[in-house]
Nucleic acid binder design. Structure first.
Lengths: 172, 172
DNA sequence: CGTTTTGTTTAGTCATAACTGAACAAACTT
DNA sequence: AAGTTTGTTCAGTTATGACTAAACAAAACG
């Protein structure tokens, strides 16, 4: 146990698992695998290596990386003297994720508010619709709490976060 | 404005919208439409009416209702002297929803903990994996906050929640 | 009893989106 | 310049799952 072969099996399992998790959240599975690989390896990985190590086409890497970049979870960097693009985890991907959920919840809340506004004030449904909107409001309030907690724990782990993102990395 | 035709258009929009929301959360759109209809109408609706009013097959109602029942969001009731099944919102669907998310997060957390346990304690990845698990932990802590908030606002709205669920409803 | 109503299950269709290979453009190498 | 590397885009394939129609079982009705 705890030999290299074992560790690699654990690594692959984690990466695959992360793929399933993000898939169930509506993202391509490959995007999750990339994310999982960046978490596990904690390193800067080249475009080509992503395709090679994950055994998928470069086209898939391209689209999944675009999604991860759009969501602010992954950052593209260059290496001095290297032609390939390299990728690493964005500075605080978890906070960014939570902020994305908040944004979505706000949009749903706005929609429900619009529904209420377009009804007569004494409509029988207004109470239930208000409770419905309230649900998303509490979720967002709760996420705000999680965001502040994340700050705390991030500080605790600061020493263990290798490879603080830089805009430009020199060759090793 | 605010005439019956308008209100009905608003109603249909809300129902369709709720369908989209739940679809993006991995549930069939029809399940969301049922849920939205129950929220808007706040009434007890028969199996047949669901199919008729939503213009979908009875088979779809059957599967979507099963999903909603499994998740504890909708309750099946009988009406004295009626052969059809009837459905209404479960007592506190929002709390149930949040608890479902908590359960899922816990399961992901457990998986990550398993990953960490199967690695040498000094593995370089442990710090990042811990932060990853921590993310799901804070989310769950936050949901706990939302759950207590929900209690509060539910009390505020108690007077506006019609049709408190009963196990058995007499005919009107 | 046969017929009707009702909900579930199953087989099949259809829509969607992930993924790939190939074509492509841009930048670099020689 | 010709050829190579690199990332994106596009067309096509494939896998998944929502949805339906039809078959079905159970219960109520006549």
């Amino acid at each position: 146990m705890f030999d290299d072969a074992n560790s690699n099996a654990v690594r692959v399992d984690f990466i695959e698992n992360t793929g399933f998790v993000t898939q169930s959240e509506g993202l391509p599975r490959i995007a999750g695998r990339i994310f999982g690989m960046l978490i596990f390896d904690g390193d800067v990985v080249s475009f080509g290596d992503l395709a090679t190590k994950l055994l998928v086409s470069r086209a898939s890497i391209s689209t999944s990386i675009r999604i991860l970049e759009e969501r602010g979870l992954v950052k593209r960097v260059t290496k001095h003297g290297e032609r390939q693009d390299f990728f690493q985890l964005a500075p605080n991907p978890y906070a960014t994720m939570l902020e994305g959920i908040q944004k979505r919840n706000r949009s749903i809340q706005t929609d429900i508010a619009g529904t209420i506004k377009n009804l007569p004030a004494d409509a029988e449904a207004v109470g239930r619709l208000t409770a419905h909107a309230n649900f998303y409001a509490s979720r967002n309030a709760a996420i705000a709490v999680a965001l502040s907690e994340l700050d705390t724990s991030q500080n605790k782990l600061a020493g263990q976060q290798p490879n603080a993102p830089k805009d430009h990395l020199d060759a090793k």
